[in-house]
């Protein structure tokens, strides 16, 4: 399931709903991404007071659905969940959550990592960080591209 929303989510509630009524699941792997209060800007860590996430409505949902379908075709999964927020957030706030349910843990761990790595390079979101002086768009990171590349099929 895919959800793109402005409002916060409750991880416990999401987990309970995700597992409700299922007895065939062997394990659930979850990842939650948070807003950090610092970011590297021009080579030095700078304090961040807030960030705003812009996205491309329509394409975001389409890309996330494609990413989810790709995970389900690569691993034997019982269910998947991706929640991604947009709008203004402050340090400590939750930005993204992925959950993967599978019979065995290896598939759940790997698929959760795959979902995060791929959404960071394919789902159209852009972060604008606010420092005490200014707001600026975050540059894409090479490490995110490298992380996504590991999942390319040879």
């Amino acid at each position: 399931m895919i959800r793109v929303q402005e409002q916060d989510f409750d991880v416990g509630e999401e987990y309970r709903r995700f597992c409700a009524g299922r007895t065939d699941v062997g394990g659930v792997c979850m990842f939650v991404g948070l807003v950090r209060d610092f970011a590297p800007i021009d080579g030095a860590d700078v304090s961040i007071s807030a960030m705003t996430l812009e996205h491309y409505p329509g394409m975001t949902e389409k890309q996330l659905a494609d990413i989810e379908a790709e995970a389900q075709s690569r691993w034997q999964l019982d269910d998947t969940l991706i929640i991604h927020r947009y709008g203004r957030m402050e340090p400590g706030d939750q930005i993204v959550m992925v959950a993967v349910a599978s019979t065995h843990r290896d598939a759940a761990f790997e698929a959760a990592r795959f979902l995060m790595d791929w959404l960071k390079t394919k789902a159209p979101f852009w972060k604008k960080e606010e420092t005490k002086d200014a707001a600026q768009w975050v540059d894409a990171r090479e490490s995110d591209d490298t992380a996504a590349k590991r999942w390319e099929k040879k």
């Binding site: 959404l119 394919k122 789902a123």
Partner: peptide, 26 residues
């Protein structure tokens, strides 16, 4: 049309074409 493409992609008059920076979500 909401799919990532390269600069050599062909265009039609009915297309939705979006321009944006490299993605920084997650």
């Amino acid at each position: 049309n909401q799919e990532h493409v390269g600069l050599d992609a062909k265009l039609n008059d009915s297309d939705e074409v979006a321009f944006f920076p490299p993605i920084t979500g997650g």
